[in-house]
Design a protein around this nucleic acid. Sequence first.
DNA 1: CGAATGATCGGCT
DNA 2: GCCGATCATTCGA
Length: 211
Amino acid sequence: MIPIKNNPLDQSFYIQSDVIHIARSLLGKILVTNINGKRTSGRIVETEAYRGFDDKACHAYGNKKTERTKTMFLEGGRSYVYLCYGIHHLFNVVTGPKDQADAVLIRAIEPIEGIDIMLQRRNFSKIKTNLTAGPGTLTKALGIDRKLHNSISLNPNQDIWIEDDGTILNQKIILESRRVGVDYAEECALWNWRFRVKNSKWTSKGKGKGE
DNA sequence: CGAATGATCGGCT
DNA sequence: GCCGATCATTCGA
């Protein structure tokens, strides 16, 4: 049997206009980094959608373009990496056509390649599920840094990209729930735009509301 | 220029 | 379950 080659997702995937559909579709795909020759990867098991036009939880709410959010207005297929709580680098995939300020936050992955490298970056001595569960921890494990990796194009010629290995997820195993940490977003806080693979032990706990 | 505020995490009680 | 860490970004004076 011929093994399926992993295909990097191309521009046509990212420029689809429905960010919610993309957030669901990214589950099961493989997030890869290759930084200073160190390749690490993991299967995406948790995402959240953010929409610039009408989503009060989105940094670009009301299509407000600032120095920070201008990345989200670029054409889909780039990274949006920002510093959260002064400590954590959070990785998002910019989606949609140019000037549609949408993004998908990657919240958890199941480690695949370069686990030893991830353990070093996290100062772990052995693998635990919280190695990559949570948007701040997975970026640390993968070596993603907002100073180096914000606004870069997601393709294998750069440090970060996403691959499809042919895995097809049954839509019935996707859990939908409220997003984490966005209680301030009024009615938008109730939208079920957090997506998780059911029964995966690699998803985040998601402190606060949202369960 | 000052002040407030997070799309979080891990340690401690 | 609670709390502190830690700082870029944003907005208003």
